[in-house]
């Protein structure tokens, strides 16, 4: 595969828990806790996990919409965690994000044409006269008639708003687009339209996607590689085919087996996990998955497993596959 366009190294984001009159910090929510991965040029890396696992915080921290607590983010060869605010703003032209909720992510008081033009004007890509012509082209490209540009967001349906959000990201000709649950809030029939649009745009403009979702069916369809997060950590990362056909981490296995498949004849062995996802404010000692794990060994409650490459390109954080852990 091509070279990495984005390298995330030991990324950490803790949020303080404040209590009392003096807002004293009494603890930390370890939303993202030592996460490392690469995203290659032109690929789609799916980032999957349940609510609260830190997948959205990972994206926001990469963009420095949240400042990372520790770690490095190398975009296009540059460590962007050290950049000054102004330089970071320039850098963000190349890294765009599409949010989940198309209702709250578009300013209700701005016309759609201004929402889309704003970034292009800020980055001096076009002057005032040409910018709206470009807005029209972008709208047409995402499937909205150009003459709708004078409308306000509330005049559009959910699916159309998500198209506007895509046009806004597209306008800056980014190298990488983070899609944060970009299709989760949409109805079934609209969702597939937007997924197709995202795929077509990738073919046309050679974008790289970091595609964040909790829906494994969508992840399977759109991704080239998949990483799964659990309570702030990546527990497995592999090529899509390996990930779905031969998952190694017990959590990945359970996650895949839990997805309801729209086929009454589809027989599978379901692994039903006991208990709930632990809070990232107070993660279990050792492996964070061990209280719910059906393969847990003694070591799992004591030592936190590292993400190791067990086969070329297949990373797993589980003692079961770790030579030091004793098994296989």
């Amino acid at each position: 595969m091509a070279k990495p366009i984005l390298q995330v190294r030991h990324l950490v984001k803790y949020f303080p828990i404040k209590k009392g009159v003096f807002r004293k910090t009494v603890g930390w929510v370890r939303a993202v806790d030592d996460v490392s991965f690469d995203v290659y040029e032109g690929e789609t890396l799916g980032l999957v996990g349940e609510s609260g696992c830190g997948k959205t915080t990972t994206a926001l921290t990469i963009l420095r919409l949240e400042e990372p607590t520790r770690g490095q983010v190398i975009f296009d060869g540059k460590d962007i965690t050290k950049l000054k605010r102004r330089d970071m703003r320039k850098m963000r032209k190349g890294m765009q994000i599409i949010f989940q909720d198309p209702y709250s992510s578009l300013d209700p008081r701005m016309k759609v044409k201004d929402i889309i033009a704003e970034g292009m004007l800020t980055h001096n890509m076009l002057n005032g006269r040409n910018v709206y012509k470009r807005v029209g082209e972008l709208l047409e490209r995402v499937g909205i008639p150009a003459d709708y540009m004078n409308r306000f967001p509330h005049e559009f349906s959910g699916g159309q708003r998500q198209r506007v959000g895509i046009a806004r990201a597209l306008a800056l000709e980014p190298k990488i687009i983070m899609c944060d649950e970009a299709v989760s809030a949409l109805d079934v029939s609209i969702r597939s339209q937007i997924i197709n649009l995202l795929k077509d745009l990738q073919n046309e403009f050679k974008f790289t996607y970091l595609f964040i979702a909790h829906d494994l069916s969508v992840i399977k369809y759109i991704s080239d590689r998949v990483a799964v997060m659990y309570v702030g950590k990546i527990v497995e990362l592999a090529d899509k085919k390996v990930f779905f056909d031969d998952p190694l981490h017990p959590y990945t296995q359970a996650l895949i087996s839990a997805v309801p498949v729209p086929n009454p004849d589809y027989k599978k062995k379901r692994i039903v996990l006991q208990g709930d996802v632990p809070s990232p404010a107070n993660p279990p000692k050792g492996c964070r998955f061990h209280p719910r794990c059906f393969m847990a060994m003694d070591i799992c409650s004591k030592v936190e497993p590292e993400l190791v490459e067990v086969k070329p390109g297949h990373f797993v954080a589980c003692h079961f596959y770790d030579k030091k852990g004793g098994n296989s």
Partner: peptide
């Protein structure tokens, strides 16, 4: 028919989602 052919799913490898055009 359209709903079933348009959704991404775990049991079949799909080349492209056959999306239902338009909106509700």
């Amino acid at each position: 028919f359209g709903l079933l052919t348009s959704i991404p799913r775990l049991d079949v490898e799909l080349k492209r989602l056959d999306a239902i055009p338009g909106f509700v």
